[in-house]
Design a protein around this nucleic acid. Sequence first.
DNA 1: CGTCATATTTACGTTAACGTCAACTTTGCT
DNA 2: AGCAAAGTTGACGTTAACGTAAATATGACG
Lengths: 133, 133
Amino acid sequence: MTRHTTDTLTIRQMCDAFGVTPRTLRFYEAKELLSPLRQGTRRLFSHKDRARLTLILRGKRFGFSLEEIRQLLGMYDPAGSNGAQLEKTHEIALERLALMEAQRADLDIAITELKGQLVEIQGRIARFRAAAE
Amino acid sequence: MTRHTTDTLTIRQMCDAFGVTPRTLRFYEAKELLSPLRQGTRRLFSHKDRARLTLILRGKRFGFSLEEIRQLLGMYDPAGSNGAQLEKTHEIALERLALMEAQRADLDIAITELKGQLVEIQGRIARFRAAAE
DNA sequence: CGTCATATTTACGTTAACGTCAACTTTGCT
DNA sequence: AGCAAAGTTGACGTTAACGTAAATATGACG
């Protein structure tokens, strides 16, 4: 039985929970997107790490690069202490927000068009079947 | 003055209109996402090509791969003649639609969260300024 | 204490989506 | 006719985001 008194996860448990590979988690750590604790040499993923990974994977689904995601993550922890840093983070957040709202508008258009095409295709299928008597 | 009686565009005009490079357009052609006409050896991009490129670039913004986009494009032209082909296209369209609606839901969540963070950060900035007397 | 499962580092391999450069060919103008 | 601009086809280079394999270490357990 694997031992874990706390609410931290081993790399394998983390992988199973999120459907990613160990390589991916180590890669994200190398890119400073995650910073799991160490128990000796092994990684332990806390609740915070899980929250961050959720954000990372969501960002990826929107087509953001890991570097863009890393900047976004910056604003989810209480780090940015000094004024200039806060301003910078605020600026990035505003840009991202605008981008995401534009993306949402785009997505609505694409969904509408796709639905239209679906009807079209269904019509073609119906006509095809009718033609086959 | 560049000559063009018809409503087709040269590769340069196409690039300027969409903000892409010639390499990109040739690459998309090689991947069968576009099929511009030829006047001798040179490419001529029709209205149809422009419509397709719009769809391609939109798909990219959603994080779709070119291969996924190619399949999506399949349903925007009247090609898919036989029954099995139509069924296949229909199936792909349904999958993509589900995916895009899920993505939209995700995007709404992300936008809401990001707005919350913005308020948070603005609060921190305000408190920071206040602390500076 | 030995062994097996799990993990770690190091390092080279891979795929997608172009960038970049070289060596032509083709047009448009003068 | 002749030259510069624009276009074409290879072919090799590059970056992001991991995959994969090898060698090593560590922890649990009979």
